[in-house]
C-alpha cells in the first residue's frame, strides 16, 4: 500500500493490519495446502466409504420398491379387469337367461290364452246358436199366434159385418195376406 495516498488514521490502521492482500502472502501457503489436503482426504474417504455407497443402496432399494409396487399395481389392475370381465359375462348370461325365461313364460301364457280363447269362442258360438234357435222358435210361435188372432179377428169382423164367414176361406185369406 502506498503511504502517501491514505490519511493518517487510515495509514495507522493499515500498518497495524497485515500487508495488502492476505491471499498473496505466500508464507502461509504451506499451512493452507497441508490442511486442505487433510480435509480433502477425510471428505473423500467419508464419501467413498460410507456416504456414497449408502445413498446408492438407498436409491437402488427405492428403485426396486417402486418397480415392485408398479408391478403389483399392474397385477392388481389386471385382476380388476379380469373381475370386471367376469362380471360382465355373468351379467350377459343372466340377461340371456332372463330373456329365455321370459320368452318361455310368454309362450306358455300364450298357449293357455289360446286354449281359453278357443274354449270361450266355442262356448260363445254354442250360446249364440242356442239363442238363435230360441229366437226362431219365439218368432215361429209369434207368427202362429198372429195367425190365430188374425183368423179370429177376421171371423169376428166378417160376422160383425153380417156375413157368414167361411172359416176356411178366411184362414186362407189371412195366410195369403200374411205372406204378402
Amino acid at each position: 500500500m502506498a503511504t502517501t495516498t491514505t490519511d493518517a488514521a487510515g495509514h495507522a490502521a493499515e500498518a497495524a493490519s497485515a500487508p495488502g492482500m492476505p491471499q498473496l502472502d505466500f508464507s502461509n501457503w504451506g499451512n493452507q495446502i497441508f490442511w486442505l489436503l487433510i480435509t480433502l482426504v477425510v471428505i473423500y474417504f467419508v464419501l467413498s466409504r460410507i456416504a456414497l455407497p449408502r445413498i446408492a443402496a438407498v436409491l437402488a432399494e427405492r428403485q426396486g420398491t417402486i418397480t415392485n409396487d408398479i408391478a403389483a399395481a399392474e397385477e392388481l389392475k389386471a385382476k380388476a379387469v379380469e373381475a370386471e370381465e367376469a362380471y360382465n359375462q355373468a351379467l350377459a348370461d343372466a340377461r340371456v337367461e332372463a330373456q329365455k325365461i321370459a320368452a318361455e313364460a310368454k309362450a306358455e301364457i300364450q298357449a293357455d290364452l289360446d286354449v281359453a280363447i278357443q274354449k270361450a269362442d266355442a262356448e260363445i258360438s254354442a250360446k249364440a246358436a242356442e239363442s238363435e234357435k230360441a229366437i226362431a222358435e219365439i218368432r215361429a210361435g209369434a207368427l202362429d199366434s198372429i195367425k190365430d188372432v188374425a183368423d179370429a179377428t177376421a171371423n169376428e169382423v166378417v160376422a160383425a159385418l153380417g156375413g157368414k164367414a167361411d172359416a176356411k176361406a178366411v184362414t186362407k185369406a189371412v195366410a195369403d195376406r200374411m205372406k204378402g
Binding site: M1, A2, P19, G20, M21, L24
Partner: peptide, 8 residues
C-alpha cells in the same frame, strides 16, 4: 485492480 491497490 486488487494487485495494483495492495501489492504494488
Amino acid at each position: 485492480a486488487l494487485l495494483l491497490m495492495f501489492a504494488v
